[in-house]
Design a protein around this nucleic acid. Structure first.
Lengths: 336, 336
DNA sequence: TCAAATAAACGAAACGTTTCGTTTTCTTTA
DNA sequence: TAAAGAAAACGAAACGTTTCGTTTATTTGA
């Protein structure tokens, strides 16, 4: 049915090898090139990626393994990645592992079976064991959002400078005179969580404030967790005048809780949230938030992957990007 | 490097044909089956999808073309679709066309080049011209969210019963005594928009209320559009005591605008929004919303596609699902 | 103008499967 | 127990490319 390279060869009187050369960007006589192009047009020829993949063992496909597809933080990045890669003729196969290590393992194996040329992963499993098979096969790996030290530096990584981001937000609250600043971080063992906490501590120390343990709440990066933990802080952390919530879902949870309890922002509590612009505008008052450069993260990820493919870059690198503080009206100077 | 079917054949002393039969679920002697399984395990054999695809002309891949990847409505559906298809060994290639008809065309062609077995599409281009090449090749097409009559019924379709959804929401407001009910719909020429408007009108007529044109605002399904149009309604639609906003982004825009203007909900305006549960909880007061069965939509879409593949179903069908009304506290009885 | 050097085109094999028509092996049944 | 029938395994060709070693055509320099 569909035209093949053979049809083009017959039509032009050239050999298969020559057509293939054309298809792969080789140099050939101008009149032959023209003839081939004419034939391709006429026969509506399209390369059969399967035949090509079989021979060349490359699929022009990149696998993306993410913890959650219905998460704006994730999709905004992936959307950019997909756009860039598609432009270069690569398809993107997305696997949503639903924050499940077992599924994540399976996803990687699935993608390897599909002979993807590279894997982009926002890792769930902290020891990186799910990526072992990919490392063994030597295919390029790019990590998003969190590094995986256990991989021994074979993977590139694009992430936020979490420490600085948290430090910046905390500083802002300190500048406004707050000293009892609560923080909601994620699970203790998660990289972003540790780093954000580190930044928070660093800022406090900068201002000569001793971090009080009762002001630190470990949530689980979910809406419910945020809700629960902010309630705990409100009840147990006496004298708290400001709070910094370190991801989007928990920021949502916090807002819900504060609304329920009638805690006024910023009169009773100054609040800095994380990640989502729309939310910061719809909330009342508009929220001050730490905003990640999602577009840039996606661009860098795609770029790094493409550079690995083209051979421009062989050694893995880590790219750390900076967050910005989006000013809203949810903070105010502490009354002295 | 990697083991092939030949290696399995050598290891087991069986022929290629037999191994292939095993791989494709054929029936064979128990001891041969066991031997093959042992060999596969031992040699860590994995099917080469490219060789298989070349022969069988099937890719075990489904293309998904969507208008926007960073849109919860879309991703929640796609997430389900991906999960189901993956379980059946299919990969999902996602193309985000950014609500651009030209890109949408290109995406379809791209997927055809990739020899996808089927295409799932939430169409942007209303005349379906982008799908023509797919129709010609006879590959199964499944439309999400909106039908495409111009395709002449060759595509299956999974969508919301938009008319009923809007009628239900409008009825609710009517029951509460409201008579001057504003509605924010999308662009006039968009299917969902037309249907939702139709449902609104139907409900009004049911209650003997003549729909007033000044209560109908055509937005563009964006946050900004929602913001602008609700402002217009507030200014021009005298005596409006309730409003129904028919998608998520515009609901966000509406909330922002109402907050800005200090319009109290539900005291001054009863509000029913659309689509997103989290928002309905974080907003203050919690929002009453029309909620789409996203999970079900995804399941049906995947199921229908798989049935086409397996040959269980040959004729295209349209599945219309019902929305539910999620009660919040953003509506109240009109004071008489 | 002719040989040497360079550039372009060619032929054939290979990639790892599936499939179809055939042969071999196993079960029945008389 | 042998022949017939059913079930399972086999062999070989084909799918549409790429690639490597070789041949043919073109250009260059003397």
């Amino acid at each position: 049915m569909a035209a093949t390279i053979k049809d083009i060869a017959r039509e032009t009187g050239l050999s298969l090898a020559t057509i293939s050369k054309y298809l792969n960007g080789g140099v050939l006589r101008e009149k032959n090139r023209a003839a081939i192009e004419r034939a391709i047009e006429k026969l509506d020829y399209h390369v059969n990626e399967y035949a090509r993949g079989l021979k060349s063992n490359r699929s022009r496909t990149v696998g993306v393994v993410i913890p959650e597809l219905s998460n704006l933080f994730v999709t905004q990045i992936i959307s950019v990645v997909e756009g860039v890669l598609q432009e270069q003729g690569y398809s993107v196969v997305i696997c949503d592992c639903r924050t499940d290590e077992e599924r994540e393992c399976r996803a990687v194996r699935f993608l390897l079976d599909k002979r993807v040329d590279g894997i982009i992963n926002m890792p769930v499993c902290a020891d990186g064991r799910h990526l072992r098979p990919a490392v063994e096969r030597g295919i390029p790996i790019l990590l998003l959002d969190r590094p995986l030290d256990a991989l021994g530096g074979v993977a590139s990584c694009v992430l936020l400078n979490n420490e600085n981001a948290a430090r910046m937000a905390t500083r802002r609250l300190l500048e406004l005179g707050h000293r009892r600043i609560g923080i909601l971080v994620g699970p203790k063992d998660i990289y972003t969580s540790r780093m954000r906490l580190k930044g928070y501590r660093a800022a406090l120390e900068e201002y000569g404030v001793t971090p009080a343990e009762e002001l630190i709440a470990y949530g689980d990066y979910t809406l419910e967790g945020g809700h629960r933990q902010i309630c705990r802080l409100l009840e147990e952390a006496e004298g708290m005048t400001a709070a910094f919530v370190t991801n989007y879902e928990m920021t949502l949870g916090t807002l819900i809780a504060l609304n329920e309890r009638g805690v006024r922002i910023p009169q009773e509590l100054s609040l800095i949230g994380f990640d989502n612009m729309d939310l910061s505008r719809v909330a009342r008052p508009p929220l001050t938030i730490v905003s990640q450069p999602l577009e840039e993260i996606g661009l860098q990820a795609a770029r790094l992957m493409l550079e690995r493919f083209s051979g421009e870059r062989t050694a893995p690198v880590t790219v750390a990007l900076s967050a910005s503080l989006q000013e809203g009206k949810s903070t105010r100077r502490r009354r002295t």
